[in-house]
Design a protein around this nucleic acid. Structure first.
Length: 207
DNA sequence: GGCCAGGACACCA
DNA sequence: TGGTGTCATGGC
């Protein structure tokens, strides 16, 4: 039940390749924070307003005062917390002139721990940033992943618990890690949220 | 009107 | 380390 590559291949065949819907890394950083504990639709409203105000230009985002920033991201909730998170991450990235490759070179395997030090960046957001911003393979053991793997016989009680149990194949690329996470969340929305029933043929294909 | 949505954090034992 | 309350808006 730990054949992640086989699961990945079956899911791609089932749903097609999925990826993070953004055109730039600053936009991904913002999306990763704004989508915390809300729907993508709500996060998108905030992103639309941020784009209108700043064109996702990091320096323009850093220049926003708290009141303006909070007003722009209000639709996705927790706007006080999220404004602090956005500022913390962008100020940290600014220290490295938004040179993502240089940051990875600098911290290497310690990058995840550095990300976790930032205000508003927890396990899930750290892994999302690793995958989509720093091009480093990682497994996002989020809510949907926990539900999916529970159906596949791997029960877990929280993020860390599942993360401990799942290891990506050593040859898994960052792109595959991106698609894998996209697939898990698309799959989760489809089968664990709406009225759609879980596709038993999917389970049969995997077992 | 209550519940949930691609979490994180402070506080507590 | 692990459990609980809080943060806030929008859609159904």
């Amino acid at each position: 039940m730990t054949d992640i590559r086989r699961l990945y291949q079956i899911m791609v065949a089932h749903c097609g390749e999925q990826n993070w819907p953004a055109e730039s890394k600053p936009e991904i950083v913002l999306g990763a924070i704004l989508v915390q504990n809300t729907s993508w639709e709500s996060a998108q409203k905030s992103l639309d307003q941020l784009k209108e105000a700043t064109a996702f230009d990091p320096q323009r985002i850093l220049q926003l005062d708290d009141q303006t920033l909070q007003a722009l991201i209000r639709p996705s909730g927790f706007y006080r917390n999220k404004s602090k998170a956005i500022r913390a991450v962008f100020e940290w990235l600014d220290d490295f002139n938004f040179d993502y490759a240089a940051i990875w070179q600098h911290f290497g395997k310690n990058l995840r721990r550095e990300l976790l030090k930032l205000r508003g960046v927890g396990n899930e957001t750290a892994d999302v940033l690793l995958i989509y911003v720093f091009d480093v393979p990682a497994f996002v053991a989020d809510n949907y992943a926990q539900k999916l793997f529970a159906h596949l016989g791997v029960s877990s009680k929280n993020y860390q618990d599942l993360a401990r149990q799942i290891t990506l194949p050593v040859d898994f690329t960052f792109h595959e890690a991106q698609v894998f996470h996209g697939l898990i969340d698309e799959f989760g929305k489809k089968y664990f949220r709406g009225q759609d029933t879980f596709d038993e043929s999917f389970l049969a294909a995997f077992n």
